[in-house]
Amino acid sequence: MYKIIGADGKEYGPIAAEQLRQWIIEGRANAQTRVLAEGATEWKALGEIPELAAMIAPPSFSAMPAPGPISIQPVAGPTGTNPLAVTGMVLGIVSVMFSCCCWGVPWNIAGIICSAIALSQIKSNPNQQGREMAIAGLILSILGIALAVALGVLLSTGEILHRFQRNF
């Protein structure tokens, strides 16, 4: 049996190892979570307790040579569609729509950031859906920047030059 300190600072438990495994899967506990094993006197990080650290990495990875860095990585979040992937794609569409105004900022920048974060989150948690949405968001946001830069260059070279020739 184990007791843990949640992200809200409250103490939970005692719970069985199987329950704790479930919480790790659901992202409620991770390698940094403070854990007090039954019989132990000292709170430890979950990642420091071998039998619990093993729960963090999937079984296929337990044979990898470097268990240290794995246990430091933030634990995967919930399953389902990644919110940032959806946000990234919506921002991508908006950044194409508004690529013509003030260089498409902030839509394209926000779209790239959201999509990139979503991609890395999905990479560390393959259960999450929305990878192709995040990629679409990234491509659309970059397209938005490209359109904005192309228009900006077109404008500053062509139009302004034209006005100068007319005025002087």
Binding site: C100, L151, G152, E159
Partner: peptide
């Protein structure tokens, strides 16, 4: 307010123009 590059450069309206 920001002005549309596309409209300035081409005189045409982009999808966001007028929003």
């Amino acid at each position: 307010y920001p002005v549309c590059f596309f409209h300035q450069a081409t005189g045409l309206q982009c999808p966001g123009c007028g929003s």
